[in-house]
Design a protein around this nucleic acid. Sequence first.
DNA 1: TCAAAAGTGTTCTTCGTACACCCATGA
DNA 2: TCATGGGTGTACGAAGAACACTTTTGA
Lengths: 228, 228
Amino acid sequence: MSTNQNIKVAVDAVVFGYTSREGLSVLLIKRNIDPFKGSWALPGGLVGNQETLEDAVQRELSEETGVNINYLEQLYSFGQQGRDPRNRVISITYYGLVKPDGFELKANTDAADVKWFNIKKLPKLAFDHQAILQVARTRLQNKMQYEPVGFELLEEKFPFSELEKLYMAVLDRHIDRRNFKKKVSKFGFLEETNEKQLLDGAGRPGNLYRFNEQKYFELKEQGISFEI
Amino acid sequence: MSTNQNIKVAVDAVVFGYTSREGLSVLLIKRNIDPFKGSWALPGGLVGNQETLEDAVQRELSEETGVNINYLEQLYSFGQQGRDPRNRVISITYYGLVKPDGFELKANTDAADVKWFNIKKLPKLAFDHQAILQVARTRLQNKMQYEPVGFELLEEKFPFSELEKLYMAVLDRHIDRRNFKKKVSKFGFLEETNEKQLLDGAGRPGNLYRFNEQKYFELKEQGISFEI
DNA sequence: TCAAAAGTGTTCTTCGTACACCCATGA
DNA sequence: TCATGGGTGTACGAAGAACACTTTTGA
């Protein structure tokens, strides 16, 4: 059993982005080699002998998509036989969060195309990537409810309503504005700036807020736990 | 990057057991080959070309320890270079739960010895297994608070106090008996039998309870969520 | 009759939730 | 002046936390 093992190790990444225009989106590449040539798939590829798993993810993302990832966390490892028709490949998957200003894409040699897809309008995906994406979505939903990772999807300064809409988009349910504000404010890691939102249409401009990560870590040290 | 990848794939398992006598325990093997010959380590080994990751874990456990695993869940994948001094090995780790009556051990060819160690009296471990164990412990603590996995560590029928002591051992804090009973009973997946505990000493014998898994799944379907 | 462990209810506080009107701005 | 979206407080009910005495058994 310990001799002649012939299994390849890959990484794949589910990268989430959010804008209030587009909602919650996922970054996909169009494959330009077989198998699944022409299909949309998660960015990813084989791990180099000398690089860590995280480095491999970062490298693949920059090779294939050009995005700047802001938060990266290991998701799950998939190892079923037949998930890649060529060889036995186990894939260690990650999910990542990108701020809206890191949204510019450039498809590269390895990919025929790169695009953001709204989470509700996904194409058919190659391999078992549909299942991976589902796991990632569920994980993000859970994670956002007990750690303030949502801020990794917003600009540095944002109106409160952005945060609220983000939570509604990810959790896919309505949230009461007043209760949500009360709950988030209570923790004390959100700073009000004295700037106001720049408007794109009518309506009263909201105050801009900033997430104080330093403060959050202090509170976490003290055992205060975030929950939405 | 895609040519001549030379990385081995292994699985390792953190197996937890519980008895009120011994408290929360972890199953370790004594290595009989180098590196770390003579050190205690988590059971595990390389994955065969034709087996799933879960199968590999089950096989290693039965080869090395002879325990019957009751619940198995993937934990995390560790891939740092240097974690195995021989080759680049990435390890996909699992944690498992064993009922007290599956406690009999038999060390086998692959291991010089197998033993249960109380979680508070662990020896130095080989490789990065100390870190893996820490991740597993934290995961178990979290998991037990939102899914009733604790029952996988108890006999089929158990006095209520067993459940309570188990939670105290895993969470490492005091739990109020009355509040705990109220909370657990409320869910309705715990059945009271009309048998009573067999005593080992003085004290009033407790009623025996049984976990109704069927009922739990029904409740879960209805969106009722377990939380301690 | 004593020691050991199990069984059981009430009160108080905290948190979650439901809910509607006024304000600032651009068109 | 109208339409759009932001800002704000209160009241009710549910759940969590603190807390002590009685019962059953073996020695």
